[in-house]
């Protein structure tokens, strides 16, 4: 009698367990549909032609909906960035580690404090006290390597994944 009962219990438990597994499998697509769709993922890299940029000039492009600052740096800017002692930096990082080619700085144009777009790309913009960028929202100053020097931002401007497809073409993402 108890053997029958445990067999019955097993079949009942097995049935309802399959139901639970099936429900879980069915719920997954509902959750997964919120993940980035195929067309969103397809826009995940951008190619930029930087051939027209002169030394000292800057270019802003949009990547994944956010601005990316590309600056072709002058000798002075490179030198000044490298002579800074790392101990004095809030987010210590050597300039050499932030660029693939010395002249070309590629950083996300998003302040690491609360997300505003810093000024410094356009010709008339103030570049802040360190020759890089200045964020008007709460007064963060970044240097010519995109590192935070003064103000409330906790980290340096983020370096996005990028590569040089050729001397004139940058692929971001």
């Amino acid at each position: 009698m108890s053997k029958e009962k445990s067999r019955r219990d097993f079949i009942v438990i097995a049935s309802y367990s399959m139901g639970a597994v099936g429900t879980g499998a069915a719920v997954w697509p509902i959750i997964d549909q919120m993940n980035p769709a195929a067309d969103t993922l397809a826009m995940s890299s951008t190619e930029v032609n930087i051939g027209a940029l002169e030394i000292g000039q800057a270019l802003t492009v949009k990547w994944r909906g956010k601005p990316v600052f590309i600056r072709r740096r002058t000798e002075t800017e490179i030198y000044d960035s490298r002579k800074v002692s790392l101990d004095s930096l809030r987010d210590p990082q050597a300039d050499e580690d932030r660029v693939q080619k010395d002249e070309w700085l590629v950083v996300m144009g998003v302040c690491t404090h609360l997300g505003c777009v810093p000024l410094g790309q356009k010709v008339g913009d103030g570049k802040g006290d360190y020759g890089g960028w200045f964020c008007p929202c709460h007064g963060s100053h970044y240097d010519a390597s995109g590192r935070i020097r003064k103000g409330p931002a906790p980290q340096n401007l983020e370096i996005p994944p990028y590569s040089f497809i050729s001397d004139n073409v940058l692929k971001i993402g």
Binding site: W28, P29, I30, D32, Q33, M34, N35, A37, A38, D39, T40
Partner: peptide
């Protein structure tokens, strides 16, 4: 509803996007 756009110029397209691009759409 998370992926649909209720506008005459975009409704049909948004449904096709669901069918083709949205995961499991």
């Amino acid at each position: 509803a998370m992926n649909y756009t209720a506008h005459v110029d975009h409704a049909f397209d948004s449904v096709e996007r669901i069918m083709r691009d949205v995961n499991g759409g």
